[in-house]
Nucleic acid binder design. Sequence first.
DNA 1: CCGATTTTGTTCTCACGTTCACAAGCTCCT
DNA 2: AGGAGCTTGTGAACGTGAGAACAAAATCGG
Lengths: 251, 251
Amino acid sequence: MTRASSRRPGPPTRTERGIPEATVARLPVYLRALTALSDSGIATASSEDLATAAGVNSAKLRKDLSYLGSYGTRGVGYDVEYLRYQIAREIGVTQDWAVVIVGIGNLGHALANYSGFGTRGFRIVALLDADPNLIGERVGDMEIRDFAELEDIVEADRVSIGVITTPAGPAQEVCDRLVAAGVTSILNFAPVVLSVPDGVDIRKVDLSIELQILAYHEQRKSGEAALPQVPELPAMNGLTDLPSVGGGVGA
Amino acid sequence: MTRASSRRPGPPTRTERGIPEATVARLPVYLRALTALSDSGIATASSEDLATAAGVNSAKLRKDLSYLGSYGTRGVGYDVEYLRYQIAREIGVTQDWAVVIVGIGNLGHALANYSGFGTRGFRIVALLDADPNLIGERVGDMEIRDFAELEDIVEADRVSIGVITTPAGPAQEVCDRLVAAGVTSILNFAPVVLSVPDGVDIRKVDLSIELQILAYHEQRKSGEAALPQVPELPAMNGLTDLPSVGGGVGA
DNA sequence: CCGATTTTGTTCTCACGTTCACAAGCTCCT
DNA sequence: AGGAGCTTGTGAACGTGAGAACAAAATCGG
């Protein structure tokens, strides 16, 4: 999403070995669907079958797969194992990636404890926190280490992916340290917009934003006409933690 | 995203009081940026300031805001408090929404303790799980209740939003129960594609997908030429059952 | 061996999203 | 009062994504 890609304006030169971002985002879904089919003992599946399992329509699925190559057989469908391997390879999960998690609060614990997480594809090599009270504590089969060790760990384990589960406050600083240490992909759970230099990918997961999007649609479902039209800043229903500094109009 | 919207093919009738989905997804980001500015005591901000704070470009921000109405002043900028209220109202977080969380494993715990919920218009009214060993356990100031009570709770508290943090297995069944009970918006953390009837909104948060997307870009950064071209189904590196954050003790 | 049937891969069209560029409108200074 | 200087709001151009429709290729039955 925030990929710093080398776009050039020239001709419509799509596919300089580049897959559309929207397709990339769906490949993991297809991968999971294929794994499920494989586990059910199904050896071959049509685009229709796959599309149903992945929750998309079959035309889109076929077009997505066509960016990878021609891995299907007309009149037959796709070989589940073969296609699964091709997608896994394209995504890059045939090798495994070293990951560090920074900020071992509730969410950090949850991610660290998730057993399937460390097994395949991604390998958690360290849990880091700056709180001296946490350092040394065991989480699953790992021990929380001092954030100061970050640089050594990143170098020693060739870590390229960092997960930030700190509060908003220290997130940017943690991010800067990760980048300086050589991490080039970041998954951010902290509720702030992080800035990173070109060449570093960042993705964000934000629970409260997801809920707000749902709330928007929910609101329109219930009272389409019940919306107050342009109210003049009423009491705000007390829902924000605002001490409201200087909120006057004329600045 | 999966909004079952009433699209009609006729003329380009955008804006039958409808805001583009991409814009809706950014409004919460603007809301947060405005809150931060407000907390810093800033009363007025230009689209450039806001855009920087929100991590987008200013043209996009202005266009997004224009869907809500004309809330800025040319030559001056936007009044932070006023705009904040308008966005909050448009999203629907000026009222508060009752939420149930189903599946109190590691992730469910983390969400239950997440403070960002209550301050932004969402009120957790129940934590549910089907595991008898968990029922009655306290999490923060709440107690885990039996999933069987779902229907009563939804009706009593007018719950419209449900969060699913169960493992993949029971997720669809939980989803069906939620829908049958009257929940019309669902946030799903389980690593499966859920199907819901029209009129129900569903959004998905999936850690393993996010990581895989990062891995894809990471792979292309490192070995652009090191990619094996079309290998013939080698050992698969044993990567089945990719992890996702849905983990936890079952519902 | 040939035609019927199935299903992929791809082309074409339309809708959506992003960005540019600029006129309209506001404030402030002289 | 009037012009200079900003900043918004929006029209238009461009790029990306989605879906329909169909030709190409494979299997199967006779």
